[in-house]
Design a protein around this nucleic acid. Sequence first.
DNA 1: ATATAATTGAGACAGAGTCTCAATATCACT
DNA 2: AGTGATATTGAGACTCTGTCTCAATTATAT
Lengths: 140, 140
Amino acid sequence: MDKKKFISFLADRNLKLTRERDEIFQAVLAKKKHFAPDDLFLEMKTGGSKISRASVYRTIPLLVESGMIEEVERVDKHAHYERVPENGHHDHMICTRCGRVIEFYSEGLEELQARICTQKNFKGTRHSLEILGVCEKCGS
Amino acid sequence: MDKKKFISFLADRNLKLTRERDEIFQAVLAKKKHFAPDDLFLEMKTGGSKISRASVYRTIPLLVESGMIEEVERVDKHAHYERVPENGHHDHMICTRCGRVIEFYSEGLEELQARICTQKNFKGTRHSLEILGVCEKCGS
DNA sequence: ATATAATTGAGACAGAGTCTCAATATCACT
DNA sequence: AGTGATATTGAGACTCTGTCTCAATTATAT
């Protein structure tokens, strides 16, 4: 996902590339891990930006729709996002003791899901799989 | 999940079987579909109970831990739960157009996940898989 | 340069869920 | 059954995430 793609996404929908959207795009680009919208907003503010909470919350769905980020686990009460990684989609294991998040990807799992969708005449576009349990370190 | 199991779950943890917990247990038992905690609370109130919101919110994690209910999809902003069905666990497909929830179960999917957990030395206890997309009816 | 339509920020608002603490209820043990 | 130690409750204030409104501002096509 590069900026050109985001700009053309906006253009396609008659949306404007404003300074605010650009700032948010950059801030998200700098994110290496999961983040919550409100944290992003606070970080930007702290970093000197004049952005408003509303703009952050308004822009996030655009980033999702343009394919730059996706919503991830909600162990917590509120939404979390992460950049769609270059190396593609993955799922998560979440340790209920220490909160560690382990990313994994299984081709077999993806294929099996696709097959199940076909069976049910369901056009799956994305999915989220979270396995809760206890990680190696905590599982003494 | 019957009441005896819940009672012994409580006993194991030095928790008391109060009238309130019992009321909530019964109310949840009567639920056939997904429900949100706040709705449950309001229904109980409307039904004449003197229960407090705090008690409902406090009891729900106990029902989850005792295996009576599990948290399900969060397309919405808040948590939803459903009774763990007699016929066992299942996953969900969620139509992003009409909101319909399709339940499905795949033995293969379960096994594959178990295998992945083993590989990662992760003790999976439960999982939630939601496939988002467009259902048969909406996918014209 | 201008017109039009999209966008912004501030802050009020809404809704879910949590917390506090004094009053009360449960249960194990007589 | 009575008692004491401990768990639990309800009310409502509070927090936090997220949404909405609307007048002022800004991006873009022309």
